[in-house]
């Protein structure tokens, strides 16, 4: 069934602004994100896209503006009025965060199985056999062999680490996942595999995703909608293929024309 049926937004962002002293991080960003929607935030380094992502994911308090999220009980809550306990519960159950550098999102000194099982244990799962079986299932879904379940991620390649990080995030069936350049720093062939995996998981699980990337090919493959940022402002937004095939703003035209054609 179509994922575009739901009429109630999952996330509502109102005029989010973040200053670093006098300098603008991001300015007056507003949008709604609906269940099952994938939104790409694109722009070059320093455009404010990571600042915005951190504000959205409660990792960085905005200077002004409000962000509301629809909790599992259906109520809309202002994210910055949640208690710390509520915020943490949200982060480890209903949300995921995929870091560019997998080491930032993994526990490098514990096994792959424990990395995936951690969220389950955090929400009270106390049966070792079940935790391990679930971890094994998820490793399979991200194409990591079962016999690596007891290995530390330190012994994994970059692409495997990233896939492990994704499994670790998705094990609690989150509804919203934030991704910060998830394919950055990987070889092209590794990137392709990861992108395909992400595309399938996002579609199968009906995830809502906010993905920050400077790679327009990633945005085209994964996202439904796109926001182009420059100097802290959203300068153009819309349907992904519309913005990429018919860019309107000078900066977007420059971005699109800068892609190397293979």
């Amino acid at each position: 069934m179509s994922v575009f049926m739901s009429e109630e937004p999952l996330l509502q962002v109102h005029n989010v602004t973040r200053y670093y002293g006098d300098r603008i991080g991001c300015s007056n960003v507003s949008f709604d994100l609906f269940p099952g929607e994938v939104l790409a935030i694109v722009g070059e380094s320093g455009s404010g896209k990571t600042t915005l992502l951190n504000c959205l994911s409660t990792r960085l308090a905005p200077t002004a503006g409000a962000i509301e999220y629809r909790m599992r009980d259906g109520s809309m809550r202002n994210l910055y009025q949640l208690t710390e306990a509520e915020r943490r519960l949200l982060m480890r159950t209903d949300w995921g965060f995929v870091h560019q550098n997998a080491a930032d999102g993994l526990r490098m000194n514990v096994s792959a199985g424990a990395n995936v099982g951690e969220r389950l244990m955090a929400v009270g799962d106390r049966h070792y056999g079940n935790i391990r079986a679930t971890a094994d299932d998820w490793l399979g879904r991200v194409e990591i062999d079962s016999d690596r379940i007891d290995d530390d991620p330190r012994s994994f390649s970059g692409g495997m680490r990233q896939r492990l990080q994704i499994a670790r995030n998705l094990v609690t069936r989150p509804r919203l996942v934030f991704m910060d350049e998830p394919t950055g720093g990987l070889d092209v062939s590794v990137q392709a595999r990861l992108l395909d995996l992400l595309r399938r998981l996002v579609a199968d699980l009906g995830l809502s995703v906010v993905i920050v990337t400077h790679d327009l090919a990633v945005a085209r493959l994964l996202s439904h909608r796109i926001m182009v940022m420059r100097q802290g402002n959203v300068i153009e937004s819309g349907l992904t293929d519309q913005v990429l095939d018919d860019p309107r703003e000078p900066y977007t035209q420059l971005l699109v024309s800068s892609i190397l054609q293979v």
Partner: peptide, 21 residues
Amino acid sequence: KMHALEDYGLMHVKLYEDIAK
């Protein structure tokens, strides 16, 4: 903070590792 919020999943991660290894 983890103590304050009774956020003790990590403790079981340690025990999980023990059993796994």
